[in-house]
């Protein structure tokens, strides 16, 4: 779809911040226009506009119940929006299933970890590679040579991803029996296995201790630099958000109340008010 085809009335497009030099002139990986959803009479998200460049790390923050996870659910087609549109690499995801949106390049992790707990860490990653493993039903059932070839390649790539996330030594451990922080990293590895162009992280540092969080911050940057993909994260740990994100969107009551660089957000009165309440003036 060409840019000129967009309906004129929703053209208010603003990037979260000054775009990264290398993203300039490129199609945004995520282009959200006037997004909104109502649950019955309740408007959960409204007028949500943002674009994310192909290699941008951006954050989504806001008080509890502000609609952050709802926005993630909209971006992954778990919910269908009531208003507005979502373009992933320029393609409108309207009416698509979650699986299709994933194939377009959107991967995510969950606030409450949702690994396949009964499978090994390696198998979890291999499930993520479902669409990139090229091996037919018959050859896998009859154990024909293509099966072994595909299986070997899948194993190799899955191991590489585990190694990348520092999880190589727990490849054969059941995901459900891993410690919390490790499960979070495994979920990221599994999301990376789907070959995404953007990865949505829902509170990746929740439940991590300061050392683990520190390490996670490095890993997030390393993911962007290695795979050249965009990262969009929800996080309550302000230290992580302010240090890692290049652009930040703040939502409250389902609406954007501020956008900008970490510096701008830190000093934004509307943000301070949303988090700390109104300052009493005398």
């Amino acid at each position: 779809m060409k840019k000129d085809n967009y309906p004129k009335h929703m053209v208010e497009v603003t990037t979260t911040n000054l775009m990264r030099e290398q993203d300039k002139g490129k199609l945004p990986v995520l282009d959200v226009r006037n997004l909104g959803i109502d649950f019955g009479g309740l408007t959960a998200v409204d007028g949500f506009n943002m674009t994310i460049g192909p290699t941008e790390i951006s954050g989504l923050i806001g008080p509890n119940g502000a609609g952050k996870t709802t926005i993630f659910n909209l971006l992954t087609s778990v919910y269908q929006p009531t208003r507005g549109s979502i373009l992933v690499n320029g393609i409108d995801t309207k009416g698509m299933t979650t699986a299709k949106v994933n194939r377009l390049g959107v991967a995510r992790t969950f606030q409450n970890i949702r690994l396949f707990t009964d499978m090994s860490a390696l198998d979890n990653v291999k499930v993520g590679m479902h669409n990139s493993i090229k091996c037919g039903f018959l050859s896998s059932l009859l154990r024909l040579p293509p099966y072994f070839k595909a299986e070997k390649e899948a194993n190799k790539r899955a191991m590489e991803l585990l190694e990348f996330m520092g999880l190589a030594d727990i490849a054969d451990v059941k995901a459900g029996s891993l410690p919390y922080g490790v499960q979070r990293r495994l979920e990221i590895a599994r999301a990376l296995a789907t070959n995404p162009s953007i990865i949505l992280l829902d509170e990746p540092a929740a439940g991590m201790n300061p050392t683990e969080t520190e390490e996670l911050m490095h890993q997030i940057r390393r993911i962007r630099d290695t795979f050249q993909i965009a990262i969009f994260l929800i996080e309550h740990d302000m230290n992580l958000v302010m240090n890692v994100c290049e652009g930040i969107v703040v939502v409250n009551y389902g609406r954007i109340i501020a956008k900008g660089t970490p510096e701008q957000i830190k000093n934004n009165p509307a943000v301070i008010e949303a988090y700390l309440g109104k300052k009493e003036t005398d």
């Binding site: 778990v78 194939r103 396949f116 993520g128 091996c135 599994r190 296995a193």
Partner: peptide, 24 residues
């Protein structure tokens, strides 16, 4: 062992998460 079998186990454990892995 098979890819479809793994997809089945994934769907069995968590349908939404499986969808997000691109599984139909």
């Amino acid at each position: 062992k098979t890819k479809i079998g793994k997809a089945m186990r994934a769907v069995s454990e968590d349908r939404d998460a499986a969808q997000l892995m691109g599984i139909n």
